[in-house]
């Protein structure tokens, strides 16, 4: 149904809440992604697994390469400051940050749904956060 209109229709508050957080986080994550990758490929930081070793094995199935190189997986690079401050680990962290963006956005949006008297969507948002966090623990793939 189309209608002539004088002004733009208002956008719901929960949409604006989601968009506001998404905007900030996506810009930050992309900057971090670029910076950490530059530190990785230009060897500004040490690496857990060298780029040459990685490239020599990237034709192998992930499980085989993992067994051979013990490259960072999941949260393993957070085990100690030494394993964290490495080029490959920081690049990996940037990917993790991108994957966590929907979680943070939904956590900010769920209260807005409850405030706007749309509790079903508040519950759906929280259930979605739960699913994403369960995936992030890695318990499903062990």
């Amino acid at each position: 149904m189309n209608q002539d209109t004088l002004g733009k229709p208002p956008v719901q508050n929960e949409q604006l809440a989601y968009a506001g957080v998404l905007d900030k986080l996506s810009h930050f994550a992309m900057l971090f992604l670029g910076g950490s990758y530059a530190a990785y490929v230009f060897l500004l930081l040490p690496q857990k697994v060298s780029i040459n070793a990685m490239a020599a094995n990237w034709h192998l199935k992930a499980s085989v390469m993992q067994e051979k190189l013990n490259a960072p997986v999941g949260w393993s690079f957070m085990a100690s400051p030494e394993s964290f401050l490495r080029g490959d680990a920081l690049s990996y962290l940037a990917i993790i940050m991108i994957c966590m963006i929907p979680v943070v956005c939904l956590l900010f949006t769920a209260p807005a749904f409850f405030r706007e008297k749309r509790p079903i969507f508040g519950v759906i948002a929280l259930l979605q956060v739960l699913i994403l966090l369960v995936a992030a623990t890695g318990m499903l793939v062990r």
């Binding site: 990758y37 990785y40 390469m65 997986v73 990996y92 995936a135």
Partner: peptide, 18 residues
């Protein structure tokens, strides 16, 4: 974002390529 975690925990996410 949900599926990417499986790839990360299985060692199938290489920053060098991604």
């Amino acid at each position: 974002a949900a599926a990417a975690w499986v790839y990360m925990f299985k060692g199938a996410m290489l920053p060098l390529i991604a």
